[in-house]
């Protein structure tokens, strides 16, 4: 009995130490990435290529999701708002929920699933097939050549994707609210503009998506770089990328929102 308790405690302790250790090596990896970032700007085509693979390739899923999210928001919002006789405020509801929350958060979650997993799998496989070692032996730092361009591509792509998500979502909401339900066109836009603040809402949304970009890309890169060089290791790392990115995004969202509303 006692031995079972002690082995359970040992298990917890081991996992805790393991987590802390991984977090530490993740932080060190992040610092190295920043230090070796010069290359990704001096040779911009490396970063541009990665923006193509992370940003442009994610466009379709992001835009289609945004369109549907906007339409659903308008339908649901209208349903509730008309009970209080304020269906004119539908534009505000759609725009605020998109710009403040759904735009950055849903984009980040989709990004983790679409681009994050691709990054992890690619880097994990590069490691498993000794491509990273080969680079090291050619006196080329894999962090400068492989990691940093992908990092900056993710960080640049995410706010752009989130802004497009919000914009397309608002258009989707508009299509449902104005032509379909028959809310007044003028009221839709003017109420929206009167209540969505450029600084507090739009800029904060961009800040959020920037932070999510850093977090999601970094997690994807680290998991790939840290993956055991086997098929199982890479597949586990890919799963961890999705789980950890999603948790990080939701947690960071709560923290940032509480600061932004408090301020």
């Amino acid at each position: 009995m006692l031995s079972k308790v002690s082995s359970a405690l040992r298990g917890i302790g081991h996992r805790l130490i393991d987590r802390v250790w991984r977090f530490g090596s993740g932080a060190r990896f992040f610092v190295y990435t920043l230090i070796y970032s010069g290359e990704s700007f001096r040779r911009l085509h490396l970063t541009i290529r990665e923006i193509y693979f992370t940003g442009v390739m994610s466009l379709i899923i992001i835009l289609v999701s945004a369109f549907f999210v906007g339409m659903v928001l308008a339908l649901q919002g209208y349903n509730t708002l008309q009970k209080y006789g304020s269906s004119d405020a539908i534009g505000v509801l759609v725009a605020l929920s998109l710009v403040r929350e759904l735009g950055p958060v849903v984009t980040a979650l989709l990004f983790a699933g679409r681009a994050g997993t691709a990054i992890t799998a690619e880097i994990g496989l590069m490691k498993a097939t000794e491509q990273l070692s080969a680079m090291e032996m050619m006196a080329v730092s894999p962090i400068a050549r492989v990691v940093a361009p992908r990092f900056w591509a993710g960080v640049i792509s995410m706010p752009l994707l989130a802004a497009m998500f919000s914009m397309v979502g608002v258009l989707g909401g508009y299509l449902v609210a104005v032509p379909l339900i028959g809310v007044d066109n003028g009221a839709f836009w003017s109420q929206m503009q009167a209540n969505v603040d450029w600084r507090v809402d739009v800029v904060n949304g961009v800040i959020k998506s920037f932070v999510f970009g850093v977090a999601c890309t970094m997690i994807a890169l680290f998991e790939g770089f840290d993956a055991p060089p086997t098929a199982e290791g890479v597949s586990r790392a890919t799963t961890r990328t999705v789980v950890n990115s999603s948790l990080a995004v939701l947690g960071l969202d709560f923290i940032m929102t509480s600061f932004m509303i408090g301020a």
């Binding site: 466009l59 752009l160 497009m164 919000s166 836009w189 503009q193 009167a194 969505v196 739009v202 961009v206």
Partner: peptide, 26 residues
């Protein structure tokens, strides 16, 4: 493609500021 992507992203931020937000009126 990356050029189109960046331009569309910038346009979206601009659109959010002008059409959705109150940068013009506010």
């Amino acid at each position: 493609w990356v050029g189109i992507f960046a331009a569309a992203g910038a346009a979206a931020i601009f659109g959010l500021a002008m059409k959705v937000g109150n940068l013009t009126s506010g």
